[in-house]
């Protein structure tokens, strides 16, 4: 099932299927070494609509909620 990254449960693994929001978002993600096909999960969430801490191939990356919403994933 396709959903947005920000809709995943904590620690639920998923695979990135695509980025929404045009070239800019795509570029920002790939510049940080994150590509469709990568396995991700949310390990922590900051309170008050703060950002997520996302695990991608062993690394931890802080991703803001609005950006996380633009990442489409397939939950496992």
């Amino acid at each position: 099932m396709t959903q947005n990254l920000d809709q995943l449960n904590l620690n639920q693994w998923a695979v990135i299927s695509q980025f929404k929001g045009g070239d800019k978002v795509h570029q920002r993600m790939t510049q940080h070494g994150i590509y469709p096909g990568d396995k991700v999960r949310i390990t922590r969430a900051a309170p008050l609509d703060g950002p997520f801490l996302v695990e991608v191939s062993g690394r931890e990356i802080i991703i803001g909620r609005s950006l996380a919403h633009k990442i489409l994933v397939e939950a496992e």
């Binding site: 802080i62 991703i63 609005s66 950006l67």
Partner: peptide, 8 residues
């Protein structure tokens, strides 16, 4: 603001 992305 395009939203934050920063490696931890």
């Amino acid at each position: 603001t395009p939203g934050m992305i920063l490696e931890m």
